[in-house]
Design a protein around this nucleic acid. Structure first.
Lengths: 161, 161
DNA sequence: ATAGAATTGGGCTTATATCCCACAAAAAAA
DNA sequence: TTTTTTTGTGGGATATAAGCCCAATTCTAT
């Protein structure tokens, strides 16, 4: 279905097990891994994580990192070191490279669990967002939906009821 | 992986020993020691300490000392001496040369513990900040990222421009 | 209804962080 | 000085988590 368009589309409910493992639906999985097995998990707004093919995400940071490296070598220390430090700190916490394990399961890494606000043995909403896959805490997802797309509210309620 | 970039990147949770020892994650450790085993631990904002390769930190000290020297020569003794004294005092307590012990463990020195606000047998967040490694008290870390994260995109643009 | 696939739970193995104890060195007290 | 106490340091042992593979239940589609 979505494979035809080349866009990640669809909404699924999955449970996170005691070990913070989560099965990514095959439809999404296929497209996610189309460009390679390396993925990037990133913190978006709190209550939501996003999963990107590394090929798509990486250029966003590689550019920054490359420039950071060259600035370092150029010796612009005094003024730039502080900025590099700040940026590096944010890069560290914002994303992480991961890969899917057996049965195309993702383990939500330490440090991302609290941000997502997920407890073991609870449900998550897995949403295709065209270029990436998003993992939502149900409450946050509902809030997002009802604020951005009120007309879909009824459908979701009908589905989950 | 991050070693390829030559930048210290990554976020980890570690616990401090009863004797204020802390194991630095291997990924960070390797890069941190790349230019030598001498490290500098420094007080940044309260709730956070940073660990620098001495080779990178040293120019900062030299710069400050140079400024002190030139101000002294500039003559205005009476007024400046007080400020210089204060600056020198800050330089003294601000940083300390340390080295990693067995199993790449760092001992948080006396005088830095209160500043970091760490108790024995508690958790810290260890963060790669491109040019150094930072040790954060969890509460302070959360406050930091939630205040700086929204500006993240702007900062990248600023640096890459 | 049956077959196939998908989801999820669980066991086992391996790696590693951390707890705990032993020793060494330094400081304090006698 | 000698003794006692405190603090730093190293290394073994244990617990906890990660990774890997298989089993069982659920779901879908023929």
């Amino acid at each position: 279905m979505s494979a035809a368009t080349g866009l990640l589309i669809g909404e699924f409910i999955r449970t996170v097990d005691r070990r913070y493992r989560l099965a990514i639906p095959p439809e999404l999985c296929e497209l996610l891994l189309a460009t390679g097995s390396r993925l990037v998990i990133a913190k978006e707004r709190s209550g939501c994580l996003s999963l990107w093919p590394a090929a798509i995400w990486q250029p966003r940071i590689d550019g920054a990192i490359e420039i950071m490296g060259s600035k370092l070598q150029a010796g612009l220390f005094a003024q730039r070191v502080g900025q590099l430090q700040e940026l590096g700190r944010l890069l560290s916490t914002r994303h992480k490279i991961v890969s899917l394990k057996a049965r195309s399961r993702l383990v939500v890494p330490e440090g991302f669990r609290e941000f997502l606000g997920v407890q073991p043995d609870t449900e998550l909403v897995v949403v295709g967002a065209a270029v990436c896959v998003e993992l939502w805490q149900p409450a946050a997802w509902n809030a997002c939906i009802s604020s951005e797309m009120p007309e879909f509210r009824r459908r979701i309620d009908a589905l989950t009821a």
